[in-house]
Design a binder for these strands. Structure first.
Lengths: 159, 159
DNA sequence: TTAAATTAGTTGCAATATCATCCTATATAG
DNA sequence: CTATATAGGATGATATTGCAACTAATTTAA
């Protein structure tokens, strides 16, 4: 009885109706746990893999650029990079042209694990999108993009 | 240049393609900030409102039941309820029939602010779903439900 | 050229959240 | 009836994240 879930429960209650916020939050939290477990063998936490992947998918970047691309606070980036560096996956070279910048690159060890991390993430993605056709998934992503844009536009105004 | 965003960026890179995980995470984090700001006047953080609303929408519940319904760890529930209690919005009555249980109910002050919290949340919802038609939003919610179910099913197996 | 403003990154603090462990109360076994 | 198991909560440790304040380096203004 009383399957866990987020629905309004006892419908009658003057309903705020189903809201994406609740689902987003629950999905986020549960995915963090799954991803953390999946990446534990590589000593990478759920807070670091996006940075690793972002660095992997291009040439040297700065933390500022990473923060902007991933929509993350620069402090978060700094701390995540510090962990990746401590694990020996990422190297920080100060930009000779401008010593304020730290150019981020993968180490050899970093390049080695990237494929495994990619596989792990692909597994998580496949498991969690199960039941969504390609069309449904595509429109899902489109909706996510719209919601995210709504949120980031709010911020731009504020600046 | 280089609009912030999550897309694969330099497409060429052997693509993990667009993944809902990135968007979910970005949306979650940004919504936390917006909701925290919106609820600050009531001294309620982004981590407490779901509990307040859940308690508001029914008769007395236990923390265990809340945790299950909201898909949250019981420690998280305990801490959130403690804050709501400290603010005077929630009361914990030990169940006379079984002293292990704490029956949670709103205080008068709690009942007073609920409508304002609901309005605040409705504002956030309206702002963030802007650009999604009712049909699009509905199918969005359906997809979120599917993804969430995929995640919680994984856990059940594990137990 | 020197002073002020801007920029990239770091650090301290607080909030959210989970896991592991412990405590207390009830239920079950022997 | 006592001993063990179980259940709901509480607590401590740890991870992720954002904001504010700070440092160091470069750029812009006077």
């Amino acid at each position: 009885m009383s399957e866990p879930g987020l629905s309004d429960g006892d419908g009658a209650a003057a309903g705020a109706a189903d809201s994406h916020g609740q689902y987003i939050s629950a999905i986020y939290r549960h995915m963090q746990v799954v991803i953390a477990a999946e990446l534990a063998p590589y000593r990478i936490g759920s807070g670091q893999y996006i940075f690793l992947m972002a660095i992997a998918s291009g040439r040297a970047v700065t933390q500022k650029a990473l923060s902007a691309r991933l929509l993350v606070d620069k402090a978060t980036t700094a701390k995540a990079i510090a962990k990746l560096e401590a694990e020996g996956y990422v190297r920080r070279d100060p930009d000779p042209a401008d010593n304020r910048y730290q150019l981020l690159e993968l180490t050899d060890e970093g390049r080695q694990i990237v494929p495994y991390v990619k596989e792990a993430l692909a597994r998580v993605k496949a498991r969690t999108r199960k039941g969504l056709s390609d069309e449904a998934y595509d429109s899902f992503i489109q909706s996510l993009k719209i919601v995210l844009r709504n949120l980031t536009e709010l911020e731009e105004i504020r600046e």
